[in-house]
Design a protein around this nucleic acid. Structure first.
Length: 420
DNA sequence: TCTGGGGTCCTAGGACCC
DNA sequence: TCTGGGGTCCTAGGACCC
């Protein structure tokens, strides 16, 4: 059996842990730049606020419903996530942290346990330790555990725990489960399946395997088998290093100036470099893109990207910034108002044995020492304590975050201002 | 006025090899 | 008239996830 543990309305719940006055009140959390709704408390869902809705479109609803609105505070959510995961990990050695608010638990060694009761324990103690409410779904495959979790959440009578064990339970669950809710079936496949009259997860399990493979590749086939109760997707315990790393942002206001874009792109490159170093990797490919605001059909549109392959892979901020800026210069066109830009590095390998070049002119040892010193200072005193000059000095280009909550758990000067 | 960010995997087709 | 067989690697595009 697997259990999927999922935090309820995670970001909204994090905000609530530290401000009791939010209990019973609708709470929403917005994406970067305070753009779209990315988390909603149950009360906010009841008001009809949709996931992904632009905040400016629901201004009235927010005012009328007395909705508490927050900018996203990933430092806080990341720290709370760690606490939740630590607690979950104390219940089984078999755990896969699937996302910031979800974990799969392997329960293979728990044959002689009353699993339903055990799940209750996990739920109770996690909430007691962290303040975050969670739901658990238990089933013989990960995909079915997802289904069970969904059922646990949607039906209050289950109080956040549901288990699929018998064949009758499995079939009943799937007959009542819309195809587009299935893990692994996204918008495109739902549309396609609906055209063939497949409305529920149960309908999907009735399709012939060869048809599913032809239309949806082995990925779809795996999903089908999993829904039938045949495990195909294993627990992944180890987090493997990333194969691509990106830092991309929309700007608070559209930008025309190459100088401004350069500082932004330099900072994105520095951020990618830092992420590379954190996972002990180097990258050989740097891609930079920039584009105008797609939503403004009244303005001229432009979108471009440029990829540079380095002769020697690196994680040096200085080098990556250098190449990112070369790329930016080559794709930049005057006269457009840019809304978003980003840097994506790939061709990633370990920093343990780097293939160098005969004609290399970079003093790699020196870069390495400098980066190590920089990381140490920035980790200790805040991410912008030391930066590369190309990133600009103190320019507030970063983000619009008008309603950010305090860094309750991670920063001393915020901790002492917590309202008790 | 205003619309997020960061990832993974699979397949088909082209280029190449002997 | 007629033109082999069996592979690998890479990339772009399309699907998916939170």
């Amino acid at each position: 059996m697997y259990a999927l543990a999922d935090c309820n309305n995670f970001y909204a719940s994090c905000e609530r842990v530290f401000d009791q006055s939010l209990n019973g009140r609708p709470v929403i959390v917005l994406s970067n730049n305070d753009g779209c709704v990315i988390a909603r408390s149950n009360e906010a869902k009841a008001l009809g606020i949709k996931m992904g809705e632009p905040a400016f479109k629901i201004k009235e609803l927010i005012e009328k419903g007395n909705v508490a609105v927050f900018s996203s505070n990933y430092t806080l959510y990341g720290d709370m996530s760690q606490r939740v995961m630590n607690t979950l990990a104390s219940f089984t050695p078999d755990i896969e942290i699937y996302s910031i608010d979800e974990a799969f638990l392997g329960l293979h060694g728990f044959k002689h346990f009353d699993l339903h009761e055990y799940a209750r324990q996990i739920q109770k103690i996690t909430t007691r330790n962290t303040g975050i409410p969670i739901s658990l779904g238990l089933a013989p495959t990960k995909t079915l555990a997802k289904v069970a979790n969904h059922i646990a959440k949607k039906n209050p009578e289950h109080k956040g725990v549901y288990m699929i064990t018998t064949e009758e339970q499995r079939i009943a669950a799937l007959k009542n489960y819309d195809i587009e809710e299935v893990w692994g079936i996204g918008r495109q496949y739902s549309k396609m399946l609906l055209r063939f009259g497949v409305r529920t997860a149960y309908d999907f399990t009735r399709l012939s395997a060869s048809w599913v493979k032809r239309q949806m590749s082995v990925v779809g086939l795996r999903t089908q088998k999993e829904l039938l109760g045949i495990p195909c997707i294993e627990l992944e315990h180890t987090t493997s290093p990333k194969k691509a790393i990106a830092t991309t942002r929309s700007f608070g206001e559209m930008q025309t100036d190459l100088g401004y874009l350069s500082e932004a792109v330099a900072s994105f490159a520095a951020s990618c470099a830092h992420k590379l170093r954190k996972q002990q990797s180097v990258a050989q490919i740097v891609m930079v893109f920039a584009h105008t605001n797609y939503f403004r059909d009244d303005l001229p549109q432009y979108s471009a990207s440029k990829t540079i392959t380095l002769s020697v892979p690196t994680s040096s901020s200085i080098e990556l910034i250098h190449y990112a800026l070369l790329a930016l210069k080559s794709l930049y066109k005057q006269g457009f108002r840019y809304k978003k830009a980003g840097v994506i590095v790939s061709g990633i390998s370990t920093n343990q044995h780097v293939q160098t070049s005969l004609f290399d002119t970079v003093d790699r040892e020196k870069h390495k020492r400098l980066m190590a010193a920089m990381d140490k200072l920035n980790d200790r005193y805040g991410r912008y304590t030391i930066k590369i000059a190309a990133q600009g000095a103190g320019r507030k280009w970063e983000l619009r975050q008008e309603r950010i909550s305090p860094y309750y758990t991670t920063r001393w000067d915020d901790i002492i201002t917590v309202k008790v």
